[in-house]
C-alpha cells in the first residue's frame, strides 16, 4: 500500500535487520519456565467475582446509604435499652393517682406517645423492631440455606426431580394457615414458633425458585460444554450455576425479611400472633390499625408503619442493587 518510503524509514529498517543478524540463537529463543501465576494472567488477569460485585455495589450510593441505615437501625435496637432514660417496653406507666397514662400523644416524656394501657411506644417500637428483624433474618437464613441446597439438587439432578416435585406438591398445597394454626396448637406462641411456622413451608418456595432458574440455565451451552469435558456435577453446580444464581438468591433473601414481617402482621391479624409481652411490629401495627378511624390516635399506627416501611424499602433497594451488582455480566461493561 505504501507507495512512498522515506529515506529515514529505509535506513531504520536496515539497522534493525543488521541488529537481528548479529544476535545469537540463545538470544533469539529461550524456553519459558511453566509459571502457574503468569499463565492465569492471560485471561481476565485480575478479575475477582466478589471484588467486582462489591465494586459495582459501591457505585450505587443510595443502596450503600441504606445499608448503613439498616445497620444503624439494627445497632440502635440493640443499644437502645441501655441508653439512659428509656422505659421498659412492657412497663405500664401510671400517673400520680395510680391510673395508667392512656393514649398520651407524643410529648417530651413519651417521644412516640403511649398506647391504651400506658406503655411507652418509643420503647415498644424499638423492642418490636428488634424482635421482628430477628425473626425476619432467621427466616431468610434458614430459607436460603435449605432452599439453595434442595433447589440446586432438585433442578440439576434429574432423578430427584419427581421426588421433590411431589414434596412440593404436597407442602405447597396444604394451605399455610392450616400449618400455622396446627403449630400454634402444638407449640406455645412465641418467637421460635413463628420462625418454625414460617420456615416450615417457605423453604420449598425458595427451592422451587432456584430449581426453575436451574432448569433454565442447566441446558445452556456452556454447561453442555462443561458436561462434555467431563466436569463433575458438584463442580458444575458450584462454579457454573451458583454464581449465576447469587443475584436472584440475594434479592429473594433481602425480600424475605420484610415479607416475614408482613407474615407476622397477618398472623397477628388472624389472632395467632406473639403474646403482648413480646412486642413486635406486627402486634403494634395490628393494635394501631384498630384505631385508624380516629384521627388523633393515628400516631399509634403511623410510627410502626414508618419503621416497617423504612426497613422494607431498605431491604428492597439493597437487594435489588446487590443483585444487579452480583450479575457477572454487569462487571465487564
Amino acid at each position: 500500500m505504501l507507495r512512498y518510503k522515506s529515506k529515514t524509514v529505509s535506513k531504520l529498517e536496515k539497522q534493525v535487520e543488521e541488529h537481528i543478524e548479529n544476535m545469537s540463537d540463545e538470544q533469539l529463543f529461550s524456553f519459558a519456565e511453566y509459571d502457574r501465576d503468569r499463565s492465569e494472567k492471560t485471561a481476565y488477569s485480575n478479575y475477582s467475582y466478589w471484588k467486582s460485585t462489591f465494586r459495582a455495589f459501591r457505585k450505587n450510593k443510595v443502596a450503600v446509604a441504606l445499608v448503613w441505615v439498616v445497620l444503624g437501625i439494627l445497632l440502635f435496637t440493640l443499644i437502645q435499652p441501655f441508653l439512659p432514660g428509656q422505659y421498659d417496653p412492657n412497663y405500664i406507666n401510671n400517673d400520680t393517682s395510680g391510673l395508667q397514662f392512656r393514649n398520651i400523644e407524643p410529648c417530651s416524656q413519651f417521644w412516640f406517645g403511649t398506647n391504651s394501657i400506658g406503655q411507652d411506644l418509643w420503647a415498644r417500637i424499638w423492642a418490636g423492631t428488634r424482635n421482628s428483624m430477628m425473626i425476619g433474618i432467621c427466616v431468610a437464613m434458614i430459607e436460603a440455606l435449605i432452599g439453595i441446597v434442595v433447589g440446586v439438587l432438585w433442578g440439576y439432578v434429574r432423578k430427584l426431580d419427581w421426588f421433590f416435585t411431589e414434596i412440593y406438591n404436597i407442602l405447597d398445597n396444604i394451605p399455610n394457615t392450616i400449618i400455622l394454626i396446627l403449630i400454634s396448637y402444638i407449640m406455645k406462641p412465641g418467637v421460635p414458633t413463628l420462625i418454625f411456622a414460617m420456615c416450615l413451608t417457605r423453604w420449598i418456595q425458595m427451592a422451587r425458585f432456584i430449581r426453575n432458574q436451574v432448569l433454565i440455565i442447566r441446558d445452556r451451552e456452556y454447561n453442555l460444554a462443561s458436561r462434555c469435558v467431563g466436569t463433575p456435577t458438584q463442580k458444575i453446580i458450584t462454579r457454573n450455576l451458583l454464581p449465576y444464581l447469587v443475584s436472584v438468591i440475594m434479592l429473594r433473601m433481602a425480600l424475605t425479611v420484610p415479607e416475614a414481617i408482613g407474615n407476622e402482621v397477618f398472623i397477628t391479624y388472624i389472632g395467632l400472633g406473639l403474646p403482648t409481652n413480646i412486642p413486635s411490629l406486627g402486634r403494634l401495627i395490628d393494635d394501631g390499625r384498630q384505631l385508624m378511624m380516629s384521627a388523633s390516635l393515628r400516631y399509634q399506627l403511623i410510627f410502626p408503619t414508618i419503621v416497617v416501611s423504612i426497613v422494607t424499602i431498605s431491604f428492597y433497594i439493597i437487594g435489588n442493587a446487590f443483585s444487579d451488582a452480583a450479575d457477572p455480566k454487569n462487571h465487564i461493561s
Binding site: L255, P258, G262, V265, Y269, I285, D286, R289, M292, L301, T305, V308, S309, I310, T312, I313, Y316, I317
Partner: peptide
C-alpha cells in the same frame, strides 16, 4: 410505587 406497596403493610393501606 412498587416500594410503597411492598413497604406499607396491606392492612394499613387497604383501610385508607
Amino acid at each position: 410505587f412498587i416500594v410503597f406497596i411492598q413497604a406499607v403493610p396491606a392492612v394499613v393501606y387497604y383501610l385508607f
